[in-house]
């Protein structure tokens, strides 16, 4: 188990955002996290990646208790993360953005080596042609790729992808899925939050479902999509659910 989240709860004043969430991720797998809007998926990521500590519970990465560590410490340990709403470093070029990832990530490379790694990663995600453009000038799909590239440049062991497919058109989605598969081939463990059902169901080895901050299901994509609570949480109407599920079992 490369990552285990044990009984993690998070309260914001009166709001219980996460309620005793427990899950484990195996090395090398693609682990999907789904749930309706406001279920607490991004909050979960934030506690794993150190943006804020959980109110209760523990997070263990590769056997070490990393609960409450700062994001930069976790980055050095090999956890990388992308944001749902992309955060490019606007006034820096694409290449400089990715170089930052390589410089300060797990390998902590000196500048010249980092710049070379950045070039390799840009090639991997297909952004080489936009190398010297300012990050703020990219379109959404390109920014999403940049976000990925920056995270990958740190050579992470585990990468948390927060809705990488949101806002992309079907072709862009297919391209991005290809990149995700390539990442897995490199041996990186992936945990992804996604709303695009067919994508997450197709790609994930296992899926975890959150609703109102608590776990309501966990298992293979097949098991989860047939789970009554999941259907209820998302859809309510069994007829629609049936039609929907028939679409994902391909």
């Amino acid at each position: 188990m490369i990552l285990s989240v044990e009984n993690v709860s998070k309260r914001f004043g009166g709001l219980q955002a996460l309620d005793k969430v427990t899950l484990s991720v195996k090395e090398g797998e693609i682990f999907g996290i789904i749930g309706p809007n406001g279920a607490g998926k991004t909050t979960l990521f934030n506690t794993i990646n150190g943006v804020y500590p959980p109110t209760e519970g523990h997070i263990k990465f590769r056997g070490d208790d990393v609960t409450g560590l700062q994001p930069y410490d976790l980055s050095k340990r090999g956890i990388a993360r992308t944001y749902q709403v992309v955060r490019p470093l606007g006034e820096l070029t694409v290449h400089e953005n990715v170089t930052v990832g390589a410089c300060f990530g797990r390998e902590n490379l000196p500048l010249e080596k980092a710049e070379k790694v950045a070039d390799e990663v840009l090639e991997f995600v297909g952004l080489t042609v936009r190398r010297d453009i300012l990050a703020s000038k990219l379109n959404v799909a390109q920014k999403k790729r940049l976000e990925m590239a920056r995270a990958l440049a740190a050579r992470p062991i585990l990468i948390l992808l927060d809705e990488v497919l949101a806002g992309l058109n079907p072709q862009e989605v297919a391209d991005m899925l290809g990149v995700v598969r390539k990442i897995r081939e490199q041996g990186v463990t992936i945990v992804m939050i996604e709303h695009l059902m067919h994508a997450v169901m197709n790609l994930s080895d296992r899926v975890f479902v959150l609703d109102y901050g608590a776990q309501i299901a966990e298992g293979t994509p097949q098991e989860v999509s047939n789970h009554p609570k999941v259907i209820e949480a998302y859809l309510g109407d069994p007829e629609v659910a049936k039609r929907f599920l028939e679409g994902t079992s391909s």
Partner: peptide, 19 residues
């Protein structure tokens, strides 16, 4: 480079490994 990253987005910089 780290400084300019902080200038652009301090929170994102933290996630990238910068203190």
């Amino acid at each position: 480079l780290g400084l300019m990253s902080i200038r652009e987005d301090q929170d994102a910089s933290m996630v990238l490994g910068i203190n």
